[in-house]
Amino acid sequence: MDLIKSLKSLTEEPLRRAARERKDSPLAVRFISIVDKVVNTGKACSVWPVQFGLACCAIEMIATAAARYDLDRFGIIMRPSPRQSDCMIVAGTVTAKMAPVLERLYHQMPEPKWVIALGNCAVSGGRFYQDAYSVVKGVDRIIPVDIYIPGCPPRPESLLDGLLKLHDKIRGESIADDPVREGIRPGMSGYEPAGE
């Protein structure tokens, strides 16, 4: 562990610091953009979501992964374990009993990770907003969400659109950004840049 940490501090930290400090230098910009492109293409072209189908939207997620609206062509493979995945597609209603489980699974995912809220129930509580005493009104009350896909249930084309937007979001990230703290990324509310 120490060896890895010291290796990291020798290579990664200076690179990022250099990227942040010399962002205006054309050579640095060129370098950063090439590295970004390679790294982000790698990240975007193999988003592996953890299977987190809760309710009806899970069926649409499964249908999207099936042969007609194939997800595998985007490099998306559903993983059973959060430890092996980098995206969490919350598909379905999150209830008060399920919320701690959801949070624990989110923390078990390694960085970098993204969250997609699929379906009205995950976006805002959906049809359960008014009278349901046990439904969490939107999964973003528990974990930070990157992409919201409304619909009840959303069509597979919507899910594909959301995933492609996630690709765009991933490709917009940069190694020159501030280091990632657990769950909070640049562009999200609640983000405070690291002190100067």
Binding site: A96, A99, S124, Y129, Q130, D131, Y133, V136, K137, R141
Partner: peptide, 18 residues
């Protein structure tokens, strides 16, 4: 006569929406 748990951070309903 059940009272809705409006003080729960996850379950509370926003004034705006309600």
């Amino acid at each position: 006569d059940y009272e809705y748990p409006d003080d729960h951070p996850w379950l509370s309903r926003d004034e705006l929406h309600d």
